[in-house]
Nucleic acid binder design. Structure first.
Lengths: 199, 199, 199, 199
DNA sequence: CATGAATGAGTATTCATTCAT
DNA sequence: CATGAATGAATACTCATTCAT
């Protein structure tokens, strides 16, 4: 049924519009200072309708945090831990990651909120943690390979991965979002330094 | 007047007790989910009395963010940019800073909130920014001296300093506060790597 | 849309019910001692709903003072300053006004509050003043015509009008509202005396 | 004991200072918007001391309303109902009363509040009523004598007295306090007209 | 499904009053 | 007697959520 299909399309689009505005507002003003009414207004729909798509404010926040994670995971995890030239692979992904974080300032504000109040948002925190653990594990393998090949000095590869994620998030936090993208690129060598490239 | 003095002492102590509990609660639950009533209860006083010491919730938050900054500044800034052996000085302060950040988890949660919602807490944000700028400027001088003496590779020393602060805050953010202090020390070499020690 | 129309009717009625109760309560207990909760209870609705119709207590008070003014103006101003027999016209309107003031005791209490605290309720005061000025101006013309025709002795007609309004409000103030309407009529000749009827 | 005497003098003076400020503030801002703290500040004493002189806010208000009444009564009642020339006596006292009301704007605001909220301030209201009744009774005698002597037309002398008091209070209410004293005198003939002078 | 009126729990703040110093 | 810190009752206003239309 084509009619029903187009209806479904419309609803999907509406849902996404709400979600996008919610991410924006939750990021900017935090959970409590973002009211359903504001989200509705920003989305151009009645606030009653928000509840058609998200049964509670809590759920809206949950979706705002979790749903974008898939795409981000795709980009973040898109590397080969068994790459021939681990250091080159590292350089490549560091550039990609930094570009990504520079773009994602809005969403990452959400992430920071969740991490900062892990007891309040424990479910979302767990999910982010799972991503974090998976990412660090995969990255640590690449690092180890780099060490085996003598491209990197010997360090604990998991701590190296942790440090890397911390740096990325820390940079994001430090108002560097006012920097334009070129400036973000300045941080690439420092991120690489973390891994201890042999010189 | 001894009586008046002891009275003043008592009040000072009470004010501090309120402030300590406020820092704890603001950190844990955020600005909005921390009610004056909870702060009062945690401090063991009537909620009316909170207003005797802090005229508004906003002011209480402000003091919670700003007042500890002095001591932290003292520790963070306690280094000599003109040290004979810049690399050794760097190692020393990195250890100190990491220990400090490991201890200050509660307070740093507050800092993260302020930075994350700089428009909401602009006054406090400005103050933190002043500290950040002063710190990075002083640190960049030490880094430059390290570079001049050939202990560090050539990089933009201000970006290096920014990266360092970002890493510290990022580490703090990443729930590594569950790690005990020994584990925190594991991150010292990675922090040092940021500065690009010549090898 | 009939449904929407009946909805609108209902809301209008509800709003008016709130307003009527508000006038009653503001009159009886004054601005500060009238709580939104009391108004809601008297109106038979939840106190949250009061805010659906009046966004603040201040606005509720404003409407309580201003909205009835239209009808009152209609009655008060309903005379012809160029009447053939000015004295007869004066007698007619004095009777009407006194009847009106006898009926409006509740509302006039509000007026007295506004006038008594003009700095607190400056906006409402201005509005009342506009009415007062317009009324006195129109009345003074009738008085002047009565003087020209020799029905009234020579006096400053504006002061006469002021005196008249003062007397009306003063009578209202003096608890004469316990008097029933017949007693109110007793004051008609005294009000007329103010204008100095030639004898 | 001279010391004790001067002490008593001081306290009396302090009490009066508080009362004067209280009258001022109660008049200007009303009962609820006048806080003990403001009264204390205006009086230049600690707010704890206000309770030394007046055990509750209610009592302070009571004294503010009642205590000045004695002097006012003296002036208002200072006439001879059996005067040889009642009309002349009326003229004399009307002038006096209008001058008095022109001066007493602050205090009369209090009176208006009490009359306007007689259920809230019933005790004070009773007291004012007693004065009002006594005054009107005495005045009505003078009026009657004027009627007997043919100086005034026949009217109900009590209603005439009521009207007179209403006019005085009404004039006071109508912002005529902005008028300077000369303007107040303009109202003398209108007040006299109330009594229906034979012409 | 969309809308927005109705509801009432929750919160910062004020202020009269008490009482220890 | 003077002071002002402590207390907690009271109140306007917000906002998530429900539900009738």
């Amino acid at each position: 049924m084509a009619a029903s299909d187009s209806q479904q399309q419309k609803m999907k689009a509406k849902r996404q519009r709400i979600l996008d505005e919610a991410i924006e507002l939750f990021s900017e003003h935090g959970y409590n200072d973002t009211t359903i009414a504001k989200v509705a207004k920003a989305s151009g729909i009645s606030f009653g309708s928000v509840f058609t798509y998200f049964s509670t404010k809590e759920e809206l926040f949950h979706c705002a945090v979790i749903e974008p994670l898939g795409q981000i995971t795709d980009v973040m995890m898109n590397f080969d831990p068994e790459a021939e030239d681990p250091l080159a692979e590292l350089e490549r992904i560091v550039k990609t990651h930094i570009k990504l974080f520079a773009k994602l300032s809005t969403y990452l504000s959400l992430v920071v909120q969740v991490i900062g109040h892990d007891s309040r948002f424990s479910e979302q925190f767990e999910e982010l943690n799972r991503f974090h653990d998976a990412f660090c594990l995969k990255l640590s393998k690449l690092i180890e390979n780099g060490q085996v090949k003598g491209q990197l000095i010997q360090t604990d590869s998991m701590y190296a991965a942790y440090s890397y994620m911390s740096l990325l998030l820390g940079l994001r936090l430090m108002r560097t979002d006012n920097f334009d993208h070129e400036i973000w690129e300045q941080f690439v060598p420092f991120a690489l330094n973390l891994f201890g490239p042999a010189r």
